[in-house]
Each structure stands twice: as C-alpha cells, then as structure tokens.
Amino acid sequence: MEHYNMNLTLKVWKQKNAKAQGSLETYQVKNISSEMSFLEMFDVLNEQLIAEGKEPIAFDHDCREGICGTCSMFINGRAHGPWEKNTTCQLHMRAFKDGDTIVVEPWRSQAFPVIKDLVVDRTAFDRIIQAGGYISVNTGNAQDANALPIDKKNADDSFMAAACIGCGACVATCKNGSAMLFVSAKVSQLALLPQGQPERESRVLNMVAQMDKEGFGNCTNTYACEAECPKGISIANIARLNREYLVASLSTED
C-alpha cells in the first residue's frame, strides 16, 4: 500500500470534568503519516499543543495492541471509528484522506460519566463483574485437560464470548445505552462451561440487577452493538442471557 502524508482538521470533545460543560474544539494537524495509528496521531497533536502552551487532550490508552479494551473514542459517529472489528488503537491513519475533517467524541452514556475530555468512567462495568462475573473453583494445579469433557460447540461459543475486552463500545453505540452485549458475553462465557455451573443462577440474577442499578438501558434488538463490537461478540449471547435469566428467576429459592 502506498504511504502518504495528510493534513487534517480535528473536532475534539473538550470537557474539564464531569460537572463542567463540554464543547467541540477545532485543531489542525499537519504531515500525519498514513502508517500512524489513530492514537499516535493524538500523541503528535498533544506534543504540538504542549509546545504551544495549550492543554493537551486527555484520552484513554494502554496496550495499543487491540486487546486491553482501554481506548474508547467515538470517531465520526462510530465507536472505534470506521473499520470493522477494530479498536481505536488499531485504527490506522490510512483510513483517512488528506484534508478530511474528523470528529472525535467520548463514549456517551449516562452510566459512563466523562472524567475529562475523551476519558469516561467505566467502573460500572467493574461493579457488574464484581456482582457475579467469577467462578468459585479451588485454586491449585489445573486438572488434566481431558478430565472434563466439554462439547465442542459449547467450548467454541464460550471462547467467542470470552473475546469481549469490556471496552464499552456496545454501550456507547446503543441508542438505549444498554450494556446487554457486555453482560451477556460475560454470563455466556461462564454458563457454557462446567466451571461456571455452581453460581450459574445467582450470577445472571446479580449481574443483571447490578446492570439495572448502574443506569444502563434495556435491549431493543437493534443489533448496533454487534455491528460496532471490536471483537465481533454475537447478539446470540443476549438471547442466551435472556434464557438464563428466565430459567434462574423461575427456579431460584431467593
């Protein structure tokens, strides 16, 4: 692929803290290489801003390898930008042309308050995990791989659900601000495996209760979350979550 440099106009959300009013600020960046990642372009812009005596833009980033789920930009109206099954850190500038204007916003959802600029507070996800996203197996040596036979389809479905990196793109994309894709991935991953059985019912009830408490909306099957998920988590998990929830609410003694 041919390398090229580009000049861009960026419209970036600036907001001092959760209480302050935010607005879009316009920035110009020059000589951006098509080989840079989107976050590297922000590094260049921030160095330029500091040199000019201005405040840099706060944004979340960590591994920059597409596996940690920390980066979280809403680019031109799409979570993680224009590429399919891709995180912001793995979005490269060759997705854009010289002269483009790019609008960058934080994840927008009531349950994800803005901390600063493009950084939002996603601890609601941590609290959902704490409510039930764990198993109570004893620690120690792992048993022999063949000691617990697992159906190939269940193993595959669980593995696919476990690919969720908890970035929150599903919530940011959903018109209802629903966290159903995230919660369903975590519930499915454990419900499909023998290790997840002891807490199978309490898990789904507690995680859904926490999800509601955090102020996430409900699912109305628009499939937007599946389309924007960087890991391609299937909406079939939400159907499984609903079945798990129904069975658990009918059978539980609490």
């Binding site: 803290n17 500091i50 005596g53 201005k54 405040e55 840099p56 706060a58 600063k116």
Partner: peptide, 13 residues
C-alpha cells in the same frame, strides 16, 4: 520541564 493542566484534576502529563 513543562507540565500543563492543573493539579486538582485528571492530569495525564
């Protein structure tokens, strides 16, 4: 060294 921003807010720099 130049450290922009304030001390009482999230300050990555």
């Amino acid at each position: 060294v130049r450290i922009p921003g304030d001390i009482d807010e999230m300050n990555p720099e």
